[in-house]
Nucleic acid binder design. Sequence first.
DNA 1: TGAATACATGAACAAATGCTCATATATTCA
DNA 2: TGAATATATGAGCATTTGTTCATGTATTCA
Lengths: 124, 124
Amino acid sequence: MEHDNEMFECCNVIHEDVVQRVMGQMPAEDPIYEVSELFKVFGDATRSRMICALGIEEMCVCDLSALLNMTQSAISHQLRILKAARLVRSRKQGRTVYYTLDDDHIGQIFALAFTHVTEEEGAR
Amino acid sequence: MEHDNEMFECCNVIHEDVVQRVMGQMPAEDPIYEVSELFKVFGDATRSRMICALGIEEMCVCDLSALLNMTQSAISHQLRILKAARLVRSRKQGRTVYYTLDDDHIGQIFALAFTHVTEEEGAR
DNA sequence: TGAATACATGAACAAATGCTCATATATTCA
DNA sequence: TGAATATATGAGCATTTGTTCATGTATTCA
């Protein structure tokens, strides 16, 4: 009488077994939180554009603001976020600051994401 | 006199060449936007947890709300977002609705992100 | 030293986000 | 049919987020 109709009752008599199994295999809370924080950084078009650009070539702040057609202030604020997330590194030369991607994974993650969205298009 | 001191002037006389090169290699605006929309969906701890759970096993709404210790309403709202993003698929059986991951890429993207955050830990 | 310049940053504000609460819908079962 | 149940959804609300505007800091150059 334990494995009876696992498929019908719910919410009061949840699928205890399913919940237990999944609970046992779930990643720890902390890494999940960090992963979603990482994705949150990626989850803004301006920052994604900046990441793409810096993945191509090192650029200074005003290069970025010219390329992306945004104010220098907006770019600086976003760079701050990217830097805090350790996604970007800076190098100061004179009064200009050059930024680059600080990580190898980022490119891979974006590449996967791009193939995902482009494949979805076709799959309609 | 074209390639003179590419490293010193900025903002008024931007690094024209850099900007041009990068502009030429940037992905189109549309896919970048879609990618960041995808990441925005990932960029919430609740949704990330749901995605992890559904990556392990098919679950109904109240399983999820029990597992993640959140109200049924909150879970339903988030499932709606996941479904709209085509990340999740549903199957109705009686009055319970079962959800699963709808995509192969998702697991890969998350796997990369997990290795990223865990490696960062070590790199301190 | 002082003006000019490249960048950083705080405050403010509008927009987006995620949850809760109440309620609607759909399905089962007596 | 009517009660119970699993899920969906709209409105409201507090929080977060991204930009702008103004201003601060650091560096170069005359």
